[in-house]
Design a protein around this nucleic acid. Structure first.
Lengths: 131, 131
DNA sequence: GGTCTTATCAACCAATTGGTTGATTAGGAG
DNA sequence: CTCCTAATCAACCAATTGGTTGATAAGACC
């Protein structure tokens, strides 16, 4: 039940069984029983997994008599993809720039290392944990 | 400590503080103290977060006197991206096909709904949980 | 040598998680 | 109405998680 959406999605997919169910659902909607079939766990456990996926917005459930077909909401993937790509690109960009600097550098001079040496932010008390 | 790499990565990024640290590290390597500065938690807590990120292969730590600079390993992102893209594409492909079928359909006939109606897999006992 | 800084290890704690079993709801079939 | 099927709710349990404090290790500084 993490408040923010991104945490919920990552957390939901951190479980191999749940990832497996998502994979299964790309093939088409399925009932809880159908989803449970491959796994050696109780139906209730599967039900719980589905709730996690639902809370994360990865699946929705509709109604068909006493069955509750589960449907994959692929759009949520975009949330993750965006987050990942953003920082991946940023990190790669950084290396590219660093490589350029090193390449352009005449041998023997000190390059001001990329380790962010400057500020040390004294940071107030903190130990008492205000929140 | 999930055994499989993908679970470890997803799990590591399921925490907003840890995602934040990853974001910070795209700018450049940092020491534990530098990483801890923005957060209102103990240094030990940050140390633990870093261990989770390290176990997931998202960061590595080197040595610089008594400092342990943390370095982002952006390649691991690919693991996730691959998994996500695979199933996202699969899901989108499925809808595309479904749309085609519906579009090609003359009005008024029963389209065999996309809800995977066929097999019901009797599945043996199961309730006793063998593993 | 002592002491300050940087960081980890160790024990503990409350909350969450993934699983269980048992009871219950909801709807179709006899 | 009674029974069967599909699924959820509820209570419980062990393991994991994110946090804490206290002690310790490893170097630099004087």
């Amino acid at each position: 039940m993490p408040a923010d959406a991104l945490s919920a999605v990552f957390s939901a997919l951190a479980d191999p069984t749940r990832r497996d169910m998502v994979a299964r659902l790309t093939v088409g909607d399925a009932t809880v029983n159908e989803l449970a079939a491959p796994y050696d766990v109780s139906l209730q456990a599967v039900s719980k997994h589905l709730r996690v996926l639902e809370d994360a917005g990865l699946v929705t459930r509709s109604r068909d008599a006493q069955r509750r077909p589960v449907h994959l909401e692929a759009e949520v993937f975009d949330l993750m993809t965006k987050w990942i790509e953003r920082y991946r690109r940023q990190a790669e960009e950084r290396y590219r720039r660093l490589d350029d600097v090193l390449a352009a550098m005449p041998d023997g001079i000190e390059p001001t290392p990329p380790r962010t040496p400057e500020k040390q932010t004294p940071k107030p008390t903190r130990r008492g944990a205000t929140s």
